[in-house]
Design a protein around this nucleic acid. Structure first.
Length: 862
RNA sequence: GCCAAAGUGGCGGAAUUGGUAGACGCGCACGACUCAAAAUCGUGUUCCUUCGGGAGUGUGGGUUCGAUUCCCACCUUUGGUACCA
């Protein structure tokens, strides 16, 4: 028997591709280019999960398709290999992270090759390779030279459990994103990158990118631009000091009834009166001790203390009290606000709590019953602004402030500078030494600066990084001054290496810089970048920032790195039915709590009643949903097992057939079975299972009209669907073709070849094998993509659905020549026997004729 | 709370410049082949029905000859974000 046997053919073709370097990226630049990129993985110890191959299959189909369409394709893969898990493993076992990492990379590479991805493996990059991170360090030096990297003593997110500092983005609800450990604020000396200097460009340049709207919105929100004014308030009894506030509502200045400083604001100490000093101090201390989590939990009630000081209103010259409160953040704006309770909900709450005056300066809409009014309306109680709408009042007030030298238009961003150091071992060392004179960068020729060997990978308890233990490495002599100096012991965060890896693929061996400018100008930008939505703000914002810096340096030629971006949706585990029991009795799932037992039911134990699933034969509601795959839930699907049972082509096909790429969707191993059956049918369509040869019904004959129509329909559909990345419907079209072709008694060989060609991006192994059986010696990878011909799609008859009052009641077949003849078609429609029945006894009110689409007859009772 | 996306058979999903709702696949049922099973092939499969039809794309309205598609309100789910002045 020679039935379809993926185990036999897949290994064979994977070996063939590697041996012949089938997918080596062409070095000629005569053809149009297509750079298709995957987000490279962190090679974890648990290996690939089924989520990885989803995006990777999509890009592989694009890569294979574009090659056949005559493009030079750059389709590389690499490893984002610095990171915490390998280091934690090192802490536990003493195994050097490099060994763990290499081992994991080997496993990942084998797994990816077993799925038949067409990567150019000669371009593999590894962020932990000194020849790679030499250039990560080089870029850091450039950032330093440009004044975009600086050291600062900042209150950071310190995670005692992980022994490291985290970026704001790595803290979720006051806990670490990795592990969910508590995070506290703590001042520390840190490297910071001035991403805020690029805020405006990072915001503006989003407009021209072909990215999902939701993702652009996320980045816009993250950057958080707001336009308003900065206003200076004089302080009663002080000549020099002023309180500068930022506000988006300068039009409400007349409603400012008090001021609030952040507890950490530098003026607090200066202006606090003697009577208030002890209570202010107490408040400052308690809020400093609070972690972010505490602040959020206590956020419902506003707290604060009066400083005893007064500010002078810049227009009215009235005295208004100055408070401190932790609802004002030092890190945003100027760390001080003018409080306008009537037009700001937070200020209203605070004013209510402490009995401070409230003055409305915007007339609320009629019927407004709320407290603070943030909508538009005419200004009131506002002197020269009275009667103006919000927008006009804003510009008028800004003009007044500028004229009087007490304020000006201002823009603020939520985006903060990027905390760039980590107290870890397994990361890029900073090319920096600390001397008496301060931080001094290494010169380029001293790169790469490699990690020293250490005996202990654990951070010291007080937050000194593990590298501090490597005293021989740390203590050096400054070559410039011959004085003793110390190396920087922090390392860079994992994001560093992934900020520019897409450039290294272009010229992985180039020694003159991060990327060979000659090839950079050919390959950039990335034409298609596919990865998970979890990187929407972190990686993608950081990489864009670095790219813009490199653009300013002339290292790259495009202002944005990734022209088109697609997020693949997560793959969930299999659908699960869960019922609840309390004291051994079934209860509806929505009444279940911690004390009830959750019991998983099999498919045949449940049924759907109305909108809900219930236990079969009862009305007891259960939960029906798919969950995120996780080890603890035990619903993780291992791609190795799927390949073993069904083959890589089936895995690829199923991952694409499940649904739209961007969507979250549940896994179903039964579904893999379905696409596997399709591949068996496709095989049997062409191969005689007795002999293993091409079927005798396939030979060089002229295709008939019907066959050409079926063929060109599928070519058109598959081509258009790949272009639009609608892989699920493309596969459906291939299935329809096979179902059709199976009814033919004989098949023209040319037609069989075209089918195998358009199947090949999806299921490359079986396609290579069938290609050989069709008599070819070369790989199918560079065959020309078939061109569809519109002429074969034209029917000689057109079917018109005939509707009566919008409901289809009959079908009418009209020859193509007469199909546009409105009068004729309507006549035929009305003559239809079935339609006659409807017309009888009724009045024909209206006749709708849409060419080549539909006929609708509107009738009414006589 | 705010921003965004999405709600279609038992399940995954298809169809949107408004024109036959449910393609394709899973599951299920029946039939063929088989001693039998698996595999394979074939037929059917939105629901209700008095077999004439009727209802139907989260809910309620609206626009239209015609709405899954457009508009308004609401509900639910998912993702993001949260004292950002």
């Amino acid at each position: 028997m020679h039935s379809y046997n993926p185990a036999a053919i897949e290994k064979k073709w994977q070996t063939y591709w590697l041996k012949h370097k089938t997918f080596k990226t062409p070095m000629d630049r005569s053809k149009p280019k297509y750079y298709v990129l995957d987000m490279f993985p962190y090679p974890s110890g648990s290996g690939l999960h089924v989520g990885h191959p989803e995006g990777y299959t999509a890009t592989d189909i694009m890569a294979r398709y574009k090659r056949m369409k005559g493009f030079n394709v750059l389709h590389p893969m690499g490893w984002d290999a610095f990171g915490l898990p390998a280091e934690q493993y090192a802490v536990q076992t003493g195994t050097h992270p490099r060994i763990t990492t290499e081992h994991n990379i080997k496993r990942f590479r084998e797994q990816l090759q077993a799925i038949g991805f067409s990567y150019d493996w000669d371009r593999e990059v590894n962020t932990t390779d000194p020849t790679y991170f030499k250039w990560t360090q080089w870029i850091f030096l450039k950032l330093y030279e440009m004044g975009l990297a600086y050291e600062d003593e900042v209150a950071v997110n310190w995670c005692p459990e992980l022994g490291t500092v985290l970026a704001n983005e790595e803290v979720i609800d006051g806990k670490s994103e990795v592990g969910g450990y508590p995070v506290v604020r703590r001042p520390m000396r840190q490297w910071v990158l001035k991403i805020t200097a690029y805020a405006e460009r990072l915001l503006q340049d989003l407009d021209d990118l072909d990215w999902p709207k939701s993702l652009k919105d996320m980045q816009r929100n993250w950057i958080g631009k707001s336009v308003g004014a900065e206003i200076d308030f004089a302080i009663q009894g002080y000549e020099v000091e002023k309180i500068r506030v930022f506000t988006t509502r300068p039009d409400t200045l007349f409603g400012a009834t008090y001021m609030v400083l952040a507890p950490e604001h530098h003026l607090v100490d200066i202006i606090t009166s003697e009577q208030q000093r002890s209570s202010v101090q107490e408040y400052v201390e308690t809020s400093a001790a609070k972690s972010d989590l505490d602040r959020q939990e206590l956020s419902k009630e506003k707290t604060g203390v009066w400083t005893g000081a007064f500010a002078i209103h810049p227009v009215t010259k009235k005295q208004i009290p100055i408070w401190i409160a932790d609802y004002v953040l030092l890190s945003y704006g100027t760390g001080a606000i003018m409080a306008v309770p009537a037009q700001d909900e937070r200020d209203w709450e605070f004013a209510e709590a402490f009995d401070l005056p409230i003055v409305r300066t915007v007339e609320p809409e009629e019927g407004f019953t709320g407290k603070a009014y943030t909508g538009d309306g005419p200004a009131i109680n506002s002197d020269f602004l009275n009667g103006m709408g919000v927008a006009e009042a804003k510009t008028t007030m800004i003009q007044w402030l500028e004229d009087h030298g007490v304020g000006s238009k201002a823009i603020n961003y939520k985006l903060r500078d990027w905390l760039f150091s980590r107290q870890r071992y397994w990361g890029e060392p900073f090319p920096i030494i600390h001397t008496d004179e301060g931080a001094v960068p290494l010169s380029e020729d001293q790169l790469p600066l490699e990690l020293p060997k250490v005996d202990n990978y654990q951070p010291t308890g007080d937050g000194e990084p593990p590298l501090a233990n490597a005293t021989e490495w740390v203590n050096i002599t400054d070559p410039a001054t011959a004085k003793p100096a110390k190396r920087e012991t922090n390392t860079m965060p994992q994001w560093a290496g992934s900020c520019w890896y897409y450039l290294r693929y272009i010229s992985p061996d180039w020694e003159g810089g991060p990327v060979d400018p000659d090839y950079e100008s050919y390959w950039m930008p990335v034409d298609l970048y596919v990865g998970g939505a979890e990187h929407a703000v972190l990686h993608l914002l950081y990489a864009r920032f670095w790219h813009k810096v490199l653009f300013d340096l002339g290292v790259v030629s495009t202002k944005e790195p990734f022209q088109k971006l697609v997020n693949q949706g997560m793959i969930l585990g299999e659908m699960e039915y869960t019922a609840a029991q309390k004291n051994e009795k079934w209860i509806p799932i929505d009444e279940a709590d911690e004390t009830s037992d959750k019991i998983r039911l099999a498919d045949e134990e449940v049924e759907k009643k109305g909108d809900h699933f219930v236990i079969k034969g009862t009305d007891i509601r259960i939960e029906a949903r798919a969950h995120k795959m996780s080890k603890s839930r035990g619903n993780v699907i291992n791609p190795d097992h799927i390949i073993e049972e069904f083959g890589a082509d089936s895995l690829r096909l199923y991952e694409m057939f499940m649904g739209p790429l961007e969507q979250v969707k549940p896994w179903s191993t039964k579904g893999v079975d379905g696409v596997n059956r399709f591949l068996h049918r496709a095989w049997r369509l062409l191969v005689n299972e007795e002999s293993g040869e091409l079927k005798s019904t396939i030979y060089e004959i002229e295709p008939n009209k019907e066959q050409l129509k079926v063929l060109h329909t599928v070519i058109k559909k598959v081509s258009e669907d790949i272009d639009a990345m609608r892989f699920n419907t493309a596969i459906s079209a291939l299935m329809i073709f096979v179902n059709e072709a199976n009814t033919w008694s004989q098949m023209p060989k040319a037609l069989a070849q075209n089918f195998v060609q358009i199947l090949s991006p999806f299921a490359p192994h079986i396609s290579e094998e069938l290609w050989v059986k069709l008599g070819h010696q070369e790989s199918i990878a560079y065959q020309h993509w078939p061109v569809f011909d519109e002429q074969w799609l034209v029917d000689n008859e057109i079917m018109y659905p005939i509707q009566i009052n919008g409901k289809v009641r009959a079908e009418l077949f009209v020859s193509t020549e007469r199909a546009m003849d409105k009068q004729y078609v309507l006549e035929q429609a009305k003559a239809n026997e079935k339609i006659q029945g409807y017309l009888e006894g009724n009045r024909l009110v209206k006749e709708i004729f849409v060419p080549k689409r539909i006929v609708n007859l509107v009738i009414a009772p006589r």
